[in-house]
Amino acid sequence: MIEFEKRLVAREALKLIGDVKLLGLGSGSTVAIFVEELAKSDKAGKIKVIPSSKQIEEVARNQGLEVIYPDGERPEITVDGADEIDSNLNLLKGGGGALLREKVLAYNSSTYVIIADHTKLVEKLCSKRALPVEVLPYGVSWTLGNLIKRFNCDARIRIKDLSPFITDNGNVIVDINCPPLEDPASMESEVKGVPGVVEVGIFVGLADLVLIARGSEVKVVRQGF
């Protein structure tokens, strides 16, 4: 059912593209499905894409899409996924480790669209998942210790294949196991105030449009409503 919902919401997002010439692409499994649907559509040969990660760049290239890098012109629309979405359309992102580039794309896009299955809806961010934080390798043990001290929470360097997970930017990810967030904006600001932190996986006020699939239906929620 979840895979069906991902495919359904990806197809619904494709209807929003219109005559867009430059499209930003987030990361994750739902965005990968969106890329597949885009490649099969009549828009494929008329559009250029800016990927947020090596993962989604590979998917786009394998599907025959024209990939470019951020330089001057900004995306008219960026389509992205999320790990969690609260009722105010705040997002938790970074499960795949691409949060920094995803936030850069989101901030510089005219319209930022989130697509997700219904399991991503939560009352408060960090209800189900840890908070991802991208951290410089330089002094990482200090930064980790400072995060633990500041928030009195368990925090750990993300490990993949027995080694620290390295982002596309050459940084590491620290996952903070904190209580559900009462004030995501304040938490974002506090975490970014710790030296060594590059970016945090809290996206406040960036999503213009959220498409949520539940069963055979897609609900569309706009910022401010």
Rank of each mutant, 00 (worst) to 15 (best):
residue 95 G to E: 05
residue 224 G to Y: 12
residue 134 E to I: 03
residue 146 N to W: 11
residue 94 G to M: 01
residue 20 V to G: 05
residue 151 F to I: 14
residue 79 V to D: 03
residue 64 G to A: 08
residue 47 I to W: 04
residue 113 V to N: 02
residue 3 E to W: 05
residue 119 T to N: 11
residue 150 R to A: 15
residue 83 D to Q: 02
residue 193 G to K: 02
residue 198 V to Y: 10
residue 188 E to D: 15
residue 66 E to I: 08
residue 149 K to T: 11
residue 47 I to T: 01
residue 224 G to Q: 11
residue 207 A to E: 10
residue 157 I to T: 05
residue 70 P to F: 04
residue 200 V to A: 10
residue 92 L to N: 01
residue 175 D to E: 13
residue 207 A to W: 07
residue 21 K to V: 13
residue 166 I to S: 09
residue 174 V to L: 06
residue 83 D to C: 03
residue 183 D to P: 10
residue 111 T to H: 11
residue 16 L to P: 08
residue 27 S to N: 09
residue 50 I to T: 04
residue 156 R to F: 09
residue 15 K to N: 14
residue 147 L to Y: 10
residue 110 S to K: 15
residue 51 P to N: 03
residue 9 V to S: 00
residue 156 R to A: 13
residue 192 K to D: 01
residue 117 D to V: 09
residue 72 G to C: 12
residue 55 Q to V: 06
residue 107 Y to T: 14
residue 173 I to C: 07
residue 126 C to R: 02
residue 101 R to Y: 05
residue 155 A to H: 10
residue 24 G to K: 01
residue 128 K to S: 02
residue 197 V to M: 14
residue 36 E to G: 06
residue 165 F to V: 04
residue 12 E to S: 12
residue 143 T to E: 00
residue 191 V to F: 09
residue 119 T to D: 10
residue 69 Y to G: 00
residue 19 D to N: 14
residue 14 L to Q: 15
residue 163 S to P: 00
residue 214 R to C: 12
residue 145 G to H: 14
residue 53 S to G: 04
residue 98 A to G: 04
residue 211 L to G: 02
residue 115 I to T: 06
residue 204 V to E: 06
residue 19 D to M: 04
residue 205 G to I: 09
residue 160 K to N: 05
residue 99 L to H: 08
residue 193 G to Q: 10
